[in-house]
Simulated scan of single mutants.
Amino acid sequence: MTANNAAQMTVQNIKQQAKAIAENSAIPAFWITDWLLYVINKSALFLMTDPDYLLSAAEQEQFTAGITQMQHGMPLAYLTGTQAFWSLDFKVNEHTLIPRPDTEVLVEQVLDWIVSQPNDAILNTTASNNTAPKRLLDLGTGSGCIAISLAHELKHASWQVVAVDLSLEALKIAQSNAANNEVDVKFVHSSWYQALPIHEDELFDVIVSNPPYIDENDEHLQHLQAEPISALSAPNYGLADIEHIVQQAALYLRAGGLLAIEHGFDQGFAVRQLFLNNNFKAIKTVPDYGGNERVTLGCLATIDS
C-alpha cells in the first residue's frame, strides 16, 4: 500500500489488503487496522458500519507513512504513543519498553499473594491512622505499567507504592502515566536499590521487577529498531540484573515479604536456584499465557522458619 494508490483508500480496501500487507511485511495484521482507527480517530465498530469511508488526503498520507515505518521496524505503540495494559492506557516512547500482555501475569501473582495474606489488614480500607502503610517497590519501572497497575488495584487500601528507574526520561513518562491514571506512586531516580535507604521503617512488603533478562549476545537483539536495548539485555546470559535484585533483596524486604520477578522462558531453574540460595522459601514459577515459565516468586524466610 503506497501513496500512489492512496486515491482509492477506503476503510473497505484497507481491510481487504491488511492481511497481504502484514504477510509481506512480517507485522501483525491487527497493527494495520489499529493504526487505521488511530489515524481516522474512530472506534473499532466503525470498520463494520462505515466500510465506504474515504480517507482524506491528510489521513491517507499519515496512514501510508505509518505503514512504511512499521515495515522498517517501528512498533505500533511508538506510532500511537500509547499501549493498553491491565485495562489502563500508558504513554510509551523510545525511552520505555512497550508493556506486554505476559507481564500482566506478574501483576496477577502479586495481587493474588497480597489477597491471600491472613489476618494482616493488607486490604483493610478502614485501617487506623496509627497503622503504618504496607509498602511495595517496583524496580526498573520503565513506563510505570507494573507499579501503576498495582497502585490502581490497591488505591483504596493502606499501601505505598515506590518505583525506581535509572532513566530520567523513562521516569518522566511514568510520572505522566501515574497522573493520567489517577494513582499515587513515588518515583525515585536510582540504579536498582542504590538510592533507597536501608532502614527498618522503610523496608518493603513486596518487591517486584521486570528487569532486563535477554542474553546480551542474543541474535534477536540485532533486529530491534526501536525499543531500548539497555532495558532488555543483561550480561551473564541475561541473569546479571536478576542476580543483583535477588541477592540484595534481603536488605530492603521485610521478613516474610514477597519478591516477584519476570524472566526469560528458559531461566526458571536458574532463578529458582537464586531465590533458594538467598534465603527465600515458598518459591514457585508461574507460566505466561503461552505456557512458558515467566514469573518466579518467593517469600523471604523469617528467622524461625
Rank of each mutant, 00 (worst) to 15 (best):
V161W: 10
E293D: 13
N13S: 04
W31L: 00
E227L: 07
Q222D: 15
S116Y: 11
Q69G: 01
T302G: 13
I21P: 00
Y252E: 00
A58S: 13
A77Y: 02
R272D: 10
A240N: 05
W35R: 02
Q267C: 11
D304T: 03
G66N: 01
L274D: 06
R135H: 06
K186W: 12
Y53R: 07
L88G: 06
F46N: 04
A157M: 06
L274T: 09
Q71D: 05
H95T: 12
A260M: 08
R135I: 03
A234G: 08
Q71M: 07
G140H: 01
A301V: 10
N24A: 11
V161G: 03
L297V: 09
E108C: 04
V206L: 15
P99V: 11
E262C: 10
D52E: 05
N217Q: 15
T33E: 14
L251Q: 08
H72M: 07
E169G: 04
I122E: 08
F269K: 15
I67D: 01
N124I: 05
A58L: 04
F30T: 00
P287H: 11
L300W: 02
A234N: 08
S56M: 01
H152F: 14
G81L: 06
W86Y: 08
Q222E: 15
D215P: 05
A255Y: 12
L259D: 14
G144R: 05
K281Q: 10
T96D: 06
R135P: 07
T125A: 09
K134I: 13
Q17L: 03
T2I: 09
Q248M: 08
L150Y: 03
I27L: 02
W159I: 12
E23L: 06
N119E: 03
K284I: 07
E219Y: 11
E104W: 15
A22W: 03
A174M: 07
N292K: 12
P287Y: 11
A240P: 03
H199I: 11
T80Y: 01
S25V: 03
V39Y: 04
I146W: 05
E182A: 15
Q117Y: 10
W86S: 03
W35G: 00
H220Y: 11
M1T: 07
A226E: 12
A3L: 10
A234T: 08
F46C: 05
N5D: 00
T103W: 12
E227P: 08
V105Q: 07
G257R: 14
A58V: 14
I303W: 02
L196G: 14
A174F: 13
Q8F: 15
Q8N: 13
I214N: 09
I40F: 04
A174K: 12
L258A: 09
Y252A: 02
F46Q: 02
W35D: 01
A151G: 10
A270Q: 15
L55A: 01
I67S: 04
A84F: 03
D288E: 06
V286F: 07
A255G: 10
R294K: 11
F204W: 14
G73K: 00
S25L: 12
D184G: 00
